[in-house]
Each structure stands twice: as C-alpha cells, then as structure tokens.
C-alpha cells in the first residue's frame, strides 16, 4: 500500500516537471500565435497589469496576416527561403551521396588526402569561416545572388559522413555482382545504392533543411538586398525598425516557424538517427 502511494507521488511529481518544461518550451510560440491574431491596441492595452487578457486576445483578427503579405511583401522572403533551401537539399543530397559512395566503395590513389579534407570540413563549423568567406564570395561575384547562399552550404562533411555510415552496410558483393553483369556505374548507384539508402536520404535532407532554413550569419553577410534576402534576415531587419507594430513581428515569426515544426515533428526519428551517426563518429 505504502509503495503504491509512493509510486503515485513519484508519477505526480514527474508530470508536474514535464508540464513545467512543456510550458517553458511552448510559451513563447503560443504567445506569438496569440499576439499575431490580435490588434496592436488590444495587445498593449492589456499588458499591464497582468491578466488573462495579456495572453489571450479579446477579439481575434487575421488582419496582421493580410497586412504582412500585402503591405510588407513577406511573400518574397518566404519564396527566397523555400527556393534556397530546396536547391541546397537537392544539391547536397546528390553530391554528398556520390562522394560518400566513392569513399566507401572504391580504392583510389590519394583517397586519404581527400578524406582528410572531408574530415576538416566536418570539424570546422561553418560559422567560424563565414566572415572570411565573404571575401571569397565577393571575388567570385556571389554577393547578393542565390548561388552565394547555396553553393557554400552544399558540400558538408557531416552529410558525407552520414552517407558513409550508411553505405558501409551495403554488401559490396551485391555491387560487384552487378558490375560482373555489366551494369554501368550510374545504374548501380541509382538502382542498387539509392533504393537501399532511402532513409538516409530523408535524414540528410532533413538535416540540410533545418540548417539552411534557419541559417542566419551567412545570408546576413552575403545576401542583404531586399530582393534576395531570406525569412530570417527579413524578420531580423523588420524587428530592428522602431516604427513597426509588434503584432506584425509576431505574425512574421509565427509564419516562419510553422514549416520547420510541421516538417520536423513527423520526421524527428530521422533527425535523431542523423545526429547519432554524427556523434558516434565524433
């Protein structure tokens, strides 16, 4: 009887802590959502003193959402981000997978040297070289172009490692048998390797998505113009303007986090697999 009570007490304490952390995790996001659905007057008038009306709108309105697209041209940064992210995912998945395929399956001269390059790109985080990278991008005329945002993010040691970890498990005998049968290499890659590696493509794509959709420092340096900037840059610039209504910033932030959350939640398992592969390799 006593141990049963103790167990119940433990469970109650556990749930209390869980609810508390869940509240801290969700509060800023829910507040954004709520503030995006009310007018600026409604928000500021009910802030002090603190009541339930500070959190929940008196009347709901979607006016902010209309304004942000109509008056502030928010569609442009959304489109830019979608485009840059999609191209990086496609390029990153294909090119890194091809390189990983070569490193796992073939023996060739200089393999170690090239492999060290991959290691280096894995160890040195992108942010650390972003500032000097600007000089190179400007020499290559990549400033204020989509290519400037995409190209430096495509080759990624982390993603190559991820593919290598997975390709290691593909039986080489299968590949060798296919060569004996006279299958060409593009065919072997597309019809044997890729179908077996579908999950790892999802993982790699998701990792590139999360980092590219959310990247800030590099786009800030290389793509400042209004025509080309991504959501992150647009919102940061937007929130720096003194005259802007906060409800509009809340609206923009709400819009910007919908997609990552919608993509990440159903695919979280794949992401965890990806970071596990990375952390095992160290």
């Amino acid at each position: 009887m006593r141990s049963r009570n103790k167990k119940r007490l433990c469970a109650a304490a556990l749930y209390m802590v869980l609810v508390l952390i869940a509240f801290v995790s969700l509060f800023p996001i829910l507040f954004c959502l709520s503030a995006s659905l009310r007018t600026q007057q409604d928000l500021t008038a009910h802030l002090f003193p603190f009541t339930i009306r500070s959190l929940v709108p008196e009347t709901f309105t979607i006016q902010n959402y209309i304004a942000i697209f109509r008056e502030y041209g928010f569609l442009k940064p959304v489109w830019n981000t979608v485009f840059v992210t999609a191209v990086t995912i496609a390029g990153g998945c294909i090119l890194n997978a091809l390189a990983a395929f070569a490193y796992t399956c073939f023996d060739f001269k200089g393999r170690t040297v090239f492999y060290i390059l991959v290691m280096l790109s894995f160890m040195v985080p992108f942010e650390s070289t972003a500032i000097p990278l600007y000089g190179i991008a400007s020499r290559l005329k990549l400033v204020d172009t989509y290519a400037g945002m995409i190209l430096p993010a495509v080759a990624d040691g982390m993603v190559i490692f991820l593919f290598i970890q997975f390709f290691k498990d593909i039986p080489l005998s299968l590949v060798e048998a296919a060569t004996v049968d006279g299958a060409s290499w593009p065919r072997i890659f597309c019809q044997i390797v890729v179908p077996m590696a579908k999950p790892v493509f999802i993982t790699a794509g998701l990792m590139i998505f999360m980092s590219q959709w959310n990247s800030y420092l590099w786009p800030l340096l290389v793509a400042r113009s209004k025509e080309i900037r991504t959501i992150q840059i647009a919102i940061s610039a937007f929130s720096g303007e003194r005259t802007i209504q906060w409800t509009l910033i809340y609206t923009a932030t709400t819009l910007s986090i919908i997609l990552p959350i919608a993509v990440f939640i159903p695919l979280q398992k794949y992401y965890v697999e990806g970071i596990t592969a990375g952390s095992v390799k160290g």
Binding site: A102, T129, V154
Partner: peptide, 20 residues
C-alpha cells in the same frame, strides 16, 4: 564522384581558412 564536393570544400572551407 568526389570532384564536386572536393572543389566546393576547397573553395568555401579551405579558402577562407587560408585567407584569414
């Protein structure tokens, strides 16, 4: 197969390290 990633890593990763 490794050409594209190697070139990209050299230009956009090794490049900035060397210049800095």
């Amino acid at each position: 197969l490794i050409l594209p990633t190697t070139v990209l890593i050299c230009v956009f990763k090794i490049g900035p390290i060397v210049t800095s």
